[in-house]
Write a protein that binds this DNA or RNA. Structure first.
Lengths: 255, 255
DNA sequence: TGATGATAGATTGTTGACAATCTACGAATC
DNA sequence: GATTCGTAGATTGTCAACAATCTATCATCA
């Protein structure tokens, strides 16, 4: 049985404050267990596309590559499962989650609702430097769009929405938003061949959103962001229907 | 290294179909590992209040009570952490999450956004038997409210919103909704002494919501549900300000 | 007396081993 | 030749032991 101290006692104390300049570093080292690090690394590999959707994740292999035993790897799997990035089949293994078109449509709806709230809150709370940062990103997105540089555009797009999500000033909202966006990135990466022609670009939307937020028009910003997400869903759907250049080439040759 | 088969091969096959009448049972037994069962049991104990907020969860104790080793317990911890029910401090242990007033306010906003979407979707897709079920619940809530029977009212309220969330016909939305509601229940249970006078009751809201959904008025249902959640937040806040009967009694005696 | 440091016990973090299950492959059968 | 069966190897599920860390207690010292 527990013999340290009565339950709750520590939780009520509040956090110990480290004033030393290295306090943050110490806290970081103390905070991360191997399971956490494995979780982070796998999450990075999944969202970056190093691990493709459907890939089987072998416990022993991953443990070997990361030089840890299987325990922490299994713990990381359970966390990734809850965050929707992997799927587990008992006695078979865990797989990078594959998201169907219907699932993606559903997740897009959830994201639209969250982004609508982000717009309303951000319009009220965004700080000047955040507005400046958003405008800067929009500018670069515009350039990337003109250059048809998808590799540059996609991360800028993610960053733009991340800035707004942070500007909303709601931790719970931010967490939920990130989880949902992670799942959607999984889908985009899974379905979309990396083809500049197929990356839906919507610079106009982003400019309008930034203006509404900067103006403090909560209702407008909320509506614009909501519609932007729904439009994104539609654009992505259309992009998937029109096959990528390579596939189109194959189709022509087959005909 | 992996030597079974190439990755993705199984994931693309689709699920094997069991036509036997016991197929479902077999699948259930095959699906649950000990970690899953521990996770469920702990989640039940947390949501039901058997494990109070802030309680320290001792790995060895839990493993002993559930007759498993610590491995599955640790895996369950990681899943519960991602779903927001527990908080982990490295080398210190895991604790049932405590939610502050500010956090609760933030989570309520997220829930409002999700519930707004639930209202809009449910209005379009709800099936007649679901409408009937919702109406039946409202009826019983009405009775419980008149009788000031909080122990009956609270689960009915949860069930009511669960029915609507299911009626929305969006799995991703349902999952996110449940996670958020779980966190909020944690907060209510943590702060609210079980006192009938302090349970906010809002039968009128629920009747209006059911009517809007049954009528198929998506915009109205969405707006009503959104406002209902925001109002619930406000009601709960007020209930927390007016101290419960026992505390009021103590205050009088102290004066 | 109060603060500091050392020690023992308890708890968490990690690992390696064993059991249970699954997959692949080849032999046996029709 | 195709199908079924059985076996070996690989992989996952679980456990128990060890290492690292923390907490509480008591002795020491100013």
């Amino acid at each position: 049985m527990s013999k340290y101290r009565s339950p709750m006692s520590r939780a009520q104390e509040g956090k110990p404050v480290l004033t030393s300049p290295h306090g943050a570093a110490i806290e970081l080292l103390q905070q991360h267990s191997l399971a956490t690090l494995v979780q982070r690394e796998l999450e990075r590999q999944i969202v970056s596309g190093e691990l493709a959707s459907g890939t089987k994740l072998n416990e022993a292999d991953i443990a070997g590559e990361l030089r840890v035993s299987r325990g922490p790897v299994r713990e990381a799997f359970r966390a990734l499962e809850q965050s929707g990035l992997v799927r587990t089949e008992k006695n078979r293994g865990v797989f990078v989650r594959q998201i169907s078109l219907e699932e993606a449509n559903e997740i897009y709806e959830v994201r639209a609702a969250l982004d609508g709230l982000i717009g309303r809150l951000a319009a009220k709370r965004i700080r000047p430097e955040q507005v400046a940062r958003a405008r800067s990103i929009v500018k670069r997105m515009h350039a990337a769009g003109r250059a048809r540089d998808a590799d540059a555009y996609v991360p800028l797009n993610l960053e733009f929405h991340e800035v707004l999500a942070q500007a909303a000033g709601n931790r719970a909202l931010l967490n939920n938003y990130r989880r949902v966006v992670n799942e959607l990135n999984l889908y985009r990466r899974e379905t979309l061949t990396r083809n500049a022609d197929n990356i839906p670009i919507s610079t106009k939307d982003h400019e309008a959103i930034v203006n509404a937020v900067a103006k403090g028009d909560a209702a407008l910003a909320g509506r614009l962001l909501f519609e932007h997400v729904i439009n994104s869903r539609e654009r992505l759907r259309l992009a998937l229907q029109s096959p990528p250049a390579s596939a189109a080439k194959s189709a022509r040759e087959a005909a």
